[in-house]
């Protein structure tokens, strides 16, 4: 019975049916399936498959977002239980669009997919200063700082974030991922970031890798 519900949950999540995901999550809770099992083996398992299919270009951004919306419909029911049962996320990521840049759609999508993978996301929004990034990472005890930029002229702010953490002698407390249209692997290496993520799925994979390696 447990496996049936979780399999169904994974399947309807892939189709992006938010109502069905909501109903099945409630049913799973009513059936006393463990909160973490519903999250990991139902919702996140479904999102993992969706992410893989997106990576293989079998589905496209709107499909991914229909599934993300469905994921959140299920997560709404689980959130109070996760808090009550003090179930920790596998990791925490502070994300933001760097100072001087206004483009936040990519950053938003990365945040959605990271939550879809079970991570706790602290979204600082856009036009985020180096101090705000570093302070938030310290305050929330984050594992990863994720920075986004679309303008070539705002890319240097990413280096300022890493330099500031270095200056405060806390650089190694965090991993640093960067993303945005004008960026490259080379740029990430030059500024001392740990990874350049070219899309939402690669961002999730990077964060998973970093958290696993801790």
């Amino acid at each position: 019975m447990t496996n049936d519900i979780l399999t169904q949950l994974t399947q309807v999540l892939q189709t992006g049916d938010a109502t069905a995901v909501s109903d099945l999550t409630k049913l799973a809770i009513d059936q006393s399936i463990g909160t973490k099992i519903i999250l990991d083996d139902g919702l996140i398992a479904g999102m993992n498959i969706v992410g893989e299919r997106f990576k293989k270009h079998e589905i496209f951004l709107p499909d991914l977002l229909f599934s993300a919306k469905a994921f959140y419909a299920g997560l709404e029911h689980l959130k109070p239980l996760l808090l009550k049962e003090k179930i920790a996320s596998p990791g925490k990521v502070v994300i933001g669009t760097v100072q001087g840049d206004q483009h936040d759609i990519g950053k938003n999508l990365v945040g959605i997919m990271l939550e879809g993978a079970g991570f706790e996301v602290v979204d600082l929004g856009k036009d985020v200063s180096p101090e705000q990034f570093v302070d938030a990472a310290v305050e929330t005890n984050a594992d990863v700082i994720g920075m986004s930029a679309l303008l070539t002229t705002t890319m240097p702010v990413m280096k300022k974030v890493i330099d500031l953490a270095t200056e405060r002698k806390i650089k190694d407390q965090f991993k640093y991922i960067v993303g945005g249209a004008p960026l490259s692997d080379k740029f990430a290496k030059e500024i001392g970031a740990d990874a350049y993520c070219f899309d939402t799925v690669s961002a999730v994979e990077c964060v998973k890798g970093f958290v696993k390696g801790k």
């Binding site: 992006g16 709107p62 229909f66 919306k69 419909a73 759609i105 938003n108 999508l109 959605i112």
Partner: peptide, 14 residues
């Protein structure tokens, strides 16, 4: 729309 978790429509309107 983003705040309401209406991601597909928010992204397409964007």
């Amino acid at each position: 729309l983003f705040a309401s978790n209406e991601f597909p429509l928010a992204s397409m309107l964007d």
